[in-house]
């Protein structure tokens, strides 16, 4: 019995240590609800949207993405100009920072991943493979479904 309790204590310690390690491992990025907007063939550019969650204890940043479905992938944001018009520009500093413990939403009329020179039809139901490049977490392959906005 004594031996069993000792074993149990040891195991608990290992679990706690592992959990601590994991927490100390820096940024932890989760990608949720990634989707792309359907667009006509003639529209050369498409857009992807998603929620980026950082459950780690260190900031990270999305610095780019690549896909065989796009000639070029860029990080852009739509914004209201001083004149009250809507504009679009590449994101400041070329990256989207996801602070530790926070969530950043890429959504219509705001931050988005732009797919320039689409190589596939962005029709509803299509699945597009996309690799997200993070400053610290490295590459993360994801699948994006083309669907109507909710």
């Amino acid at each position: 019995m004594k031996r069993f309790i000792r074993l149990l204590a040891l195991m608990s310690a290992v679990v706690v240590a592992l959990a601590a390690c994991q927490k100390a491992a820096g940024p932890q990025i989760q990608v949720e609800d990634a989707w792309g907007r359907p667009s006509p063939k003639v529209a050369t550019a498409g857009a992807f949207y998603m929620t980026l969650r950082n459950t780690g204890n260190e900031d990270d940043a999305l610095i780019g993405a690549s896909s065989d479905a796009c000639g070029t992938v860029e990080l852009h944001e739509s914004f209201k100009t001083a004149e009250g018009a809507m504009g679009m520009r590449p994101v400041e500093g070329g990256k989207i920072v996801i602070p530790a413990g926070q969530t950043v939403e890429l959504k219509m009329g705001g931050l988005h991943i732009m797919c320039i020179d689409k190589k596939v039809d962005f029709t509803p139901g299509t699945k597009v493979k996309l690799v997200l490049h993070f400053e610290k977490s490295g590459d993360m392959p994801i699948e994006v479904e083309i669907r109507q906005p909710k």
């Binding site: 860029e74 004149e83 018009a85 809507m86 504009g87 520009r89």
Partner: peptide, 20 residues
């Protein structure tokens, strides 16, 4: 309606801000 071309990237070419 306000609209104004501005420089984009190599891939996008110019972009146009516009009253939406």
């Amino acid at each position: 309606i306000y609209y104004q071309k501005h420089e984009g990237t190599v891939a996008t070419g110019y972009l146009v801000d516009h009253t939406a």
